[in-house]
Amino acid sequence: MKSQIEWDAQHQEWIRLAQQGNTEAITQLVSTYQQSVFNVCYRMLGERAEAEDAAQETLIKAITKLHTFNPERPFRPWVLRIASNECIDRIRRRRPSVSLDALGENGAWEWQPGKSPLPEVELLRREREAQVRSLLQHLSPLDRLLVSLFYWEGLSYAEIATVTNLTIPAIKSRLFRARRTMARHLNQEAAHA
């Protein structure tokens, strides 16, 4: 198993080679960051197909603009910044629509044999996923991004500041307000239920 220092050195080397157009290094960078980029896009856009498309677009932009990247700075916030811009643009351009990804013919989710070990487990996972999506949809694109980076990508406040261009106190404050907004909606949903 490689140590962190070895991994960092290897990573720097990939970036250096990728900046010179080395396809193998570019492939390594893409495969290292694709899941992270997809996760952010998925949380922000809420749809798998669109998130995959946005993630690919992000990675292509990153490869194309790689010569502008300063190798002394961390790569992940840089690529996530491109992802966030891409997703925010897509949300702005988006027209109201209903996702049909998870729906069966009669409009309900259908379990498919072979795709999940247990239908109960999958159903529970989908319910929790739907709850998260429902809470996130009450937030602005920027707040959605902050929540996603903080809770699921595990970025530090300083790294989030690099991605979003916000100050650390502003990030903390926005994150708290986002949580409070979601809490109010949770209360309203409970009251309606």
Binding site: T23, I26, T27, V30, S31, Q34, Q35, F38, N39, Y42, R43, R48, A51, E52, A55, Q56, L59, I60, R125, R128, E129, Q131, V132, L135, V147, Y151, W152, R179, M182, A183, L186
Partner: peptide
């Protein structure tokens, strides 16, 4: 507090498709 718990225990997003890297390149 519930929101905090929901966010902390949210299921991970799905994995990208196996051919995602090749398709991107």
């Amino acid at each position: 507090t519930s929101v905090e718990r929901i966010l902390r225990t949210a299921p991970a997003p799905p994995r990208v498709a196996d051919d995602f890297t090749q398709a991107t390149l």
